[in-house]
Design a binder for these strands. Sequence first.
DNA 1: TTGAAATTGAATATGATTATCAATTGATAT
DNA 2: ATATCAATTGATAATCATATTCAATTTCAA
Lengths: 159, 159
Amino acid sequence: MSEGPAPAYGTGGQKVRAALAAYIAQKGLKGTRQRDLIVEAFFAARRHVTVEELLERVRQQDPRVGAATVYRTMKLLVESGLASARQFGEGQARYEMAGDRHHDHLICTRCGTIVEFENDRIEAMQEVVARRHGFSVTHHKMELYGLCRNCQRHGDRKV
Amino acid sequence: MSEGPAPAYGTGGQKVRAALAAYIAQKGLKGTRQRDLIVEAFFAARRHVTVEELLERVRQQDPRVGAATVYRTMKLLVESGLASARQFGEGQARYEMAGDRHHDHLICTRCGTIVEFENDRIEAMQEVVARRHGFSVTHHKMELYGLCRNCQRHGDRKV
DNA sequence: TTGAAATTGAATATGATTATCAATTGATAT
DNA sequence: ATATCAATTGATAATCATATTCAATTTCAA
Ligand SMILES: [Mn+2]
Ligand SMILES: [Mn+2]
Ligand SMILES: [Zn+2]
Ligand SMILES: [Zn+2]
C-alpha cells in the first residue's frame, strides 16, 4: 500500500526517551525534571501540538515551568532529530515525533483537524518534476487545505 | 503539456494597473503617487519579491516612502486578488502576481533560486487522496526544497 | 561533598507585520 | 480654482511567536 496513517509512537515513547538521553549525554548536556515533564506531555498529547498547548499540559503537573523552557526543549528535540516542527500557516509551529514514515497533511480550515497521508506515486512524481528542472530534492512540503467530511456537512453550525 | 513556466506579466502589467484602478474606485479609495511607485516596482522586480526588496527599489525612486506603505499596498494588491503572498519558510512573505495559472515551486536552499512548475497529474492525485479521506480541497501548498543544478556543482564555492 | 558547567524562569530582545495618529494629500462639489 | 473632508502617509508604537540574557538554581562527575 502506498497510503495510510503514520505509526503511533513506539511503546509509550521508550525508544525516544532513550534516544534523547543518549543525545543529552553525548552532547555533555544534563537531564532535568522540566525536560522530563515536557517530553512526557509531548508523548501524551496528540500529534501536532503547539508550544502553547504543551505548556498548558506541563503546567498541570508543575505550574512553575516557564514557556522559555518548553521552547528550548522542543528545539532540543528537533535538533536531536526526535521531533520535527511543522508550519501550517497558523503563525505558531506544531510539533510531532520524527522518525515515523514520511507523510504529508490534509488540514481542515474550519475545525483544524489534521489528517496524515502518504502517497508514493505523488512522491515519485515530485522527483521526476524536480529532476526535469535540474533540482535534487532534499525535502518537501505538501499540504492540502479544505473542509473535512464533518465540516462539509455542518458548515454553518459552530465548530 | 502539463508542465511549464507560468506566463509572465501581461504587457507591462497594463491590465493589472487597470484592474487595480477599478478596485480602488469601486472601494472608494484613492490613487496615490506612492502606490503607483510601489506597483511599478512590483512589475519591474522579478517574481517572488519580499517587502524589503520592494522597498529598496521604491526608495531608489523616492527615498521617503515608508515601509508601512509598502506593506499596506501589498495587502491591498492581495485583497484585490491581483497579487498573492507566499511563505517559503524564510520568515518574510514573498509576493507574486496572481491570475496566472496555478503553479507550485522548487526552491534552492543554497542560492534561493525559485523555479515554478505545474503538474496536472500530481494535482489530480492530490484530489484523489483528499477525497479518499473525505476532504474537499480548496487550495494546497507544494514546495520542493533542494539544490538547483548550479548549486549541485559549486556546492562548496560562494553563492 | 564539591564545584564547574548546564539549566531555569523572568524579563527583555527580536523580526516581521499591523495599528495608531497627527499631518498631508486626493477626489469631488462648489 | 478653491474649499472640503475622507483617505493616505510616515514615524512610531504595538503584536506575536520565538530567542536571548542573566542571576539564581540544579545537575553530575570527580
Ligand atoms: Mn504529521
Ligand atoms: Mn510562483
Ligand atoms: Zn473540519
Ligand atoms: Zn541554487
